[in-house]
Design a protein around this nucleic acid. Structure first.
Lengths: 229, 229, 229, 229
DNA sequence: GATGAATGAGCGTTCATTCAT
DNA sequence: CATGAATGAACGCTCATTCAT
């Protein structure tokens, strides 16, 4: 139903068939190379998110990406390099919704939209969420720098917006960091713990009524919690 | 400060030095055997939670547990067996607080206590939480049965309690499953994503003021969200 | 004819069959382990001296030593470790004759004996000489430290003896370092360049008349060169 | 100080910039082609002499020669082909001084000149000497034919000259083969075992006083050994 | 001529597991 | 109980070589 993987999310419509068939060879070759890189990254997302860095083997990755192990290593010099490349692509996509949070918006509307955007990602790119989760849970041995740099900066700037709203009395007093963590935790839970959600409820975000009820529930909990209802 | 691991939680005071030194050899040996099993399970928790099933090697596990690889395999016939044993011990501890949720309690009090109990576990046994998270995120290949059996049953029975409270108008109308997931998500986030929390805020649940503010924040968000304030 | 390898030189008679068959198991096991180590070192000498560090494969080494590749790595943690162990054993044997050079001896007799000892080594342990040669020629990447330490010290002390003899007018004035290098060069040539010697003359040190004529020739050249005839 | 490599020895002044810039393309291309061949051979000498046939990789060779791996294989169809080409060029240069040995010369003068010529090569083209040494030490698997053919013939003819001088009583009686081997061994030692010489004495043939004293020492030893002093 | 892309074979090494003692 | 020794399978990676362009 929903495309699993983040290519479709990060760059929709990217893989349109070219109208004119015979491009000059140089360009065709480069296109092919980049398409292969993408295929490898897609395979990496799929397999790393299910087995972790150590559980994934180059053989499986290559097989899934449709090329030979040696050829895969031509594009990414080591398994870890591939893993990191996948992780970075994930991180970018994953933080995108937060970037949108704007001081000039209506707080209720902005938070409602943010929750929906995050849950949409959890539905459309659950593997990305899981891979990110896997890495963080294990102590982020390869991503720590990115967490302490860009992520921290982004969160600080958005926390400032929330604090502004609190100071203006537009939302209830609730520590901005805790609020952000709570929204992250709840929305990502439906991707990261999807098997558990499924085991307990038999439902998945792929079912649109469950998706909508999850969005509504989460929005209600948070907005009411912030005194916005 | 807080003991990391769940032995201290599940079986406090377990490793006291026996008062009388020379027990009969048969009994001593058996005691030693169980102590060794515990030591191996502790090592397993520590290492599996940091490296995952595939990232952990028997060599490391044995070294950490203080015995030889071959001897470790005497106690647990395979790496997967050990992994499962650790996981099961974790699951028991992890579900314990939910068992306490009682229909006859005051809803606000019960939920407040539940949140505190879960966050206490996140503080005192973060590795257990992480190991459980790791397993679920990867699709619970070895735990699915336990999720669909005991876990589902437990959640259903507690959801029924919540539904009862809602029907009685004692808490706001909020889907019980979503409510339980939200509490799980938020409280476990502080264990599972501890590095991220630390990277962004520089704080950890080990610091008692941060622990208390986290408890208060979460209780406020959930209880307000349920119209209990 | 002559045992190739240095075990026979360094530790003659070492592998005698024990008179009493059933040793206690602990001792037997250790014996076996050491015998295997020796077998591996022998295989290492044989193969490294013919193919160099990079040309030798663990598969070949293991096959020659009569065990599995994985088992070989149980005794030596890496190929390079094995290579170094072989090299060190070689170096010890190789420098031994020089140690014997004694200030109190008759110079002519001492030099004559030294030349014979070196040529005997070239005959009995040519692979050791070749492995050492291979390593030095490639710049001694793994042995440089040993050259600048122990070797240099040994040479200096023996050069002092030669210088003493020169000062006493007992041998002709010839720079001691150059003299030592010349003797090394000539005597080792018959091991290191054995194929070339064979290609040009059709002879080998294994033939006793060629061995004796080589000894005589070299002694004559050097001793006459030093004015001792 | 001294150019390392044999291009400078075998074909001095070969890489002069052409006076007239724009040659007709056909000829230019061919010239470029040969220059590239030379560059590859130079790279081959440098790298093979340091790492051996098996230790050198096409990637390194291509990088050093300044072209792509695939292009390198256009000039030499396989790594072994390149290795052999380098080796043959080395062999030619290496035997050159011996060719000069002339029956009509004064024996003392001829031998003195030969020693100096060989040591000059050891100084100016040590890598050539080392590569040759490496190959012979490993049993000359690729060069045996050349040793038993041209080399043997050359040595035989020169040994005849020496034997003539002996018969005429112009030099002391010393087996010609042994004499040639001794001169080879000593003179090449300063190239092949340069690291060892350096480790022991701290000197190198690149220092002109050490070079001259080595020449003098060697000439003295050999000529005195032959009763020419 | 020149090169980027591709690959099969092999390498050194790790690892879970077995076995004898 | 406990361990040193042993192994087959798999792993990540390198490499000489090929091929299409």
């Amino acid at each position: 139903m929903h495309r699993d993987g983040i290519a479709s999310v990060g760059a929709p419509g990217d893989d349109q068939v070219p109208v004119i068939a015979d491009k000059p060879p140089a360009r065709r070759r480069r296109k092919d190379g980049e398409a292969r890189r993408e295929a490898i990254l897609d395979a990496g997302l799929e397999i790393f998110s299910g087995l972790g860095l150590h559980g994934a083997s180059l053989d499986r990755l290559a097989e899934r990406a449709g090329l030979s192990k040696a050829n895969l290593l031509y594009y990414f010099p080591s398994k870890e390099d591939l893993y990191l490349a996948v992780l970075r692509r994930v991180l970018d996509v994953w933080l995108d919704p937060l970037q949108e949070l704007d001081a000039d918006s209506d707080p209720a509307e902005a938070i409602r939209a943010y929750i929906r955007a995050k849950l949409t990602l959890s539905r459309d790119a659950p593997q990305a969420s899981r891979l990110f989760c896997l890495e963080i849970v294990q102590g982020a041995p390869l991503l720590r720098a990115e967490l302490e740099g860009p992520l921290r900066g982004l969160v600080e700037s958005k926390a400032a917006i929330l604090r502004g709203w609190i100071d203006q009395g537009r939302i209830g007093a609730h520590d901005p960091h805790h609020l952000i963590f709570s929204i992250w935790a709840i929305t990502q839970h439906y991707a990261d713990f999807a098997v558990q959600v499924d085991a307990v409820t038999g439902r998945s975000l792929d079912e649109s009524d469950f998706f909508e009820s999850t969005v509504a529930s989460t929005q209600a909990l948070i907005l009411t919690g912030l005194g916005l209802r």
